[in-house]
Design a protein around this nucleic acid. Structure first.
Length: 261
DNA sequence: GAGATTTGACCATG
DNA sequence: CATGGTCAAATCTC
């Protein structure tokens, strides 16, 4: 799996975690938490739309490369290392010279990509009418993680955002997630990872709940369990784009979080 | 009060 | 010197 597919899967996992939190809230909420539910629902929708954008973008690269008979590794927009020394402050290398970057364009800025980011700067870019935001991994100091990303609106109508990732996460993703065990106070910080599937033979975890499990189907439509048995294959309960991407790249979203490590 | 974000300044690069 | 990436003090939010 290349980095784009992994990023898309992380985004999907985050969305699924939000959906699980939403379920928990709906199961247990006695008081009025409609705002929290609404925020979670929005978060879920953002995650899936972002993941779709990544997958579609990656699929386009994949198709293009196949037609050009180039290797799969060339599909990701990763340029050669610049081999230039890093300095403590100021511009290090331009985007084109950066050692490793992946760029995605989507109608929504990618905020929920499964990682925790800390904004450290914002700048008006000369060649663009829009500002660019700079983010570092929140675990830059704690775990010496050097992952960064830049988010910039590149088009107004229709809105189009470019999210560029630099470097790799060396932080422990699951440790980061474990920091927020079941905390439903802030949907932005919801990081539960679990991928349930209507077919119990695929994933044992869903048996733990006889309660409502909400599955996503086409166009973000939510379905209750009494409908879920109708979906015998992923293509029936995922959006068609995601299912297509899953088949195209052969990655399995039904693995547990421990499988990912 | 702690942590996150904003924003002006600093600095490397071309 | 213009530009863009980063720092860090100021400000904001919870």
């Amino acid at each position: 799996m290349n980095s784009c597919q992994q990023k898309a899967m992380e985004t999907l996992l985050h969305g699924h975690g939000c959906a699980n939190q939403l379920k928990l809230i709906m199961d247990h909420a006695k008081s009025d938490s409609s705002m929290e539910r609404e925020d979670l629902a929005k978060s879920v929708l953002h995650c899936f739309s972002d993941a779709l954008a990544i997958l579609i973008d990656t699929y386009d690269h994949h198709q293009g490369d196949q037609s050009n008979n180039s290797s799969p590794q060339d599909a990701s927009p990763v340029l050669e290392n610049s081999r230039k020394p890093l300095h403590k402050r100021g511009r290090k290398t331009s985007v084109a010279e950066s050692s490793d970057y992946r760029r995605h364009e989507s109608p929504n800025p990618i905020y929920h990509d499964g990682f925790l980011w800390r904004k450290y700067g914002q700048k008006q870019i000369k060649e663009s009418n829009h500002q660019r935001s700079y983010y570092k991994c929140a675990y830059t100091k704690d775990q010496n993680c050097e992952a960064k990303k830049q988010v910039q609106m590149i088009q107004n109508n229709p809105p189009l955002y470019s999210t560029t990732y630099f470097g790799h996460h060396t932080c422990q993703l699951h440790q980061a997630y474990a920091t927020f065990p079941g905390d439903t106070s802030d949907p932005q910080d919801s990081h539960m990872i679990r991928f349930d599937h209507p077919d119990s033979s695929i994933h044992q975890h869903q048996n733990q709940s006889q309660n409502q499990i909400i599955y996503l189907k086409d166009e973000n439509m939510m379905m209750l369990p009494d409908k879920s048995e109708e979906w015998s294959s992923p293509s029936q309960w995922m959006s068609s784009e995601v299912a297509h991407a899953v088949e195209a790249f052969g990655f399995n979203p039904f693995r547990t979080s421990s499988d990912l490590s």
